[in-house]
Design a protein around this nucleic acid. Structure first.
Lengths: 207, 207
DNA sequence: GCCGGTATTGAACCAAAGGACGATGAGCCG
DNA sequence: CGGCTCATCGTCCTTTGGTTCAATACCGGC
């Protein structure tokens, strides 16, 4: 039952994939001019890097594998790339490092006619279709902080170092750290970079 | 293991649901003023009719069930209602008449952090955002980096830690640092946070 | 007057990030 | 061939970031 086919030019992530589907086949990406077809494949996993043309990969795969549903495995998952994949006809988009368990789950969903979309990507879709006032988004998270924490959070989101913030606010660096610890706790982020992404209303990490 | 909870005011569809989750509990929709909370519920299934205010139902459920992911079961599924449900914070939207097998599948997906969207609804989402291409251009700064550096830079801009990037790319953490050092040099930034701001095209990396 | 939230700071510690040396190998180009 | 870029990795070290123990002080409400 070679219903699963992995398309990749690198083999780094193979172990995880084959753990999920030991019976799967693997082959390099078809070129846009390739003429062969294979109708036996039910599910094709398309491995892409951040710089690859995902839409082209998906379209070529759709042509040579007429009977297959297509899932994109991203080395570095990103929302724009995810959108491109789905628009090109892919049925799923997730990290190439996803656990075997997750891979099997996604396969099950898609074989049954569903589509898989990660949480952040769906957020992006919703944001695109229902453009709420962008000026009201950042404050939503900032409202959960105390005034002083807000000052610190905004400075960090702008790229400032702890020492700079301490000087700017006339307090000890230790106090900046204290505020930051409280901020991470209440907003559920792990460090200043993710805080910056959150405040600036950008993609959150994950698949 | 009462991790599943069905919220409904009618009981017509109950048999199918309980076939999927025999151990689930069932209770009427909470009112907007209800004060109880239940953090044990992992997955809450919200049953709505075509005339219900699905957003309100979802928000109330989110309040009284802080630890739960929310799935809307629609008596008469519709795209607009699906959108409203997802915007309000639901993690899934499907027909109340779905087969038990599908219910279990959706539950599995959502418990693992995913979201469930039916094919038609996703088509609708994609169609709605398709006519947006003007704002779609990769930052020019990335052109000044080598391909590998670009991968690392994008991962950092997404909030990843060095160790994560190393695993993702299958290289040593030391190599990630090497690439980052070169990136900082090339782009004239001092750390990963300012790199993130630069790539994400935000305000300014000013000092 | 006490209590909870906020703001502040210290010492110490651990983890992550970044720089400073250096090194190897693959691939390209004149 | 020799030089060049790119990618890879190692060790040692410093700086920065983040956490874990605190403690002090103000302020508003009950």
């Amino acid at each position: 039952m070679n219903r699963h086919l992995f398309l990749t030019d690198r083999s780094l992530s193979l172990p995880g994939w084959l753990a999920a589907f030991p019976e799967a086949r693997v082959r390099p990406h078809p070129a846009s001019g390739d003429e062969f077809t294979d109708t036996a494949v039910r599910l094709a996993w398309i491995h892409v890097g951040p710089a690859d043309d995902v839409a082209a990969r998906v379209r070529v795969a759709a042509r040579v594998l007429p009977g297959a549903r297509l899932i994109v495995l991203a080395n570095v998952p990103g929302q724009n790339q995810g959108l491109a994949a789905l628009e090109a006809g892919a049925s799923g988009y997730l990290s190439a490092l996803a656990a075997p368990e997750l891979l099997r789950q996604v396969a099950s969903v898609i074989e049954n006619g569903g589509l898989w979309v990660g949480p952040e990507l769906l957020d992006r879709l919703l944001a695109a279709i229902a453009p709420r006032d962008g000026a009201r988004r950042a404050p939503a998270v900032l409202d959960r902080l105390t005034p002083r924490e807000r000052e610190v959070a905004l400075a960090v989101a702008g790229g400032a170092a702890n020492k700079e913030i301490a000087n700017r606010l006339g307090i000890a660096e230790r106090t900046v750290k204290a505020h930051l610890g409280a901020i991470y706790e209440t907003l559920g982020v792990r460090d200043r970079l993710q805080l910056s992404l959150l405040i600036n209303g950008l993609p959150k990490p994950g698949n």
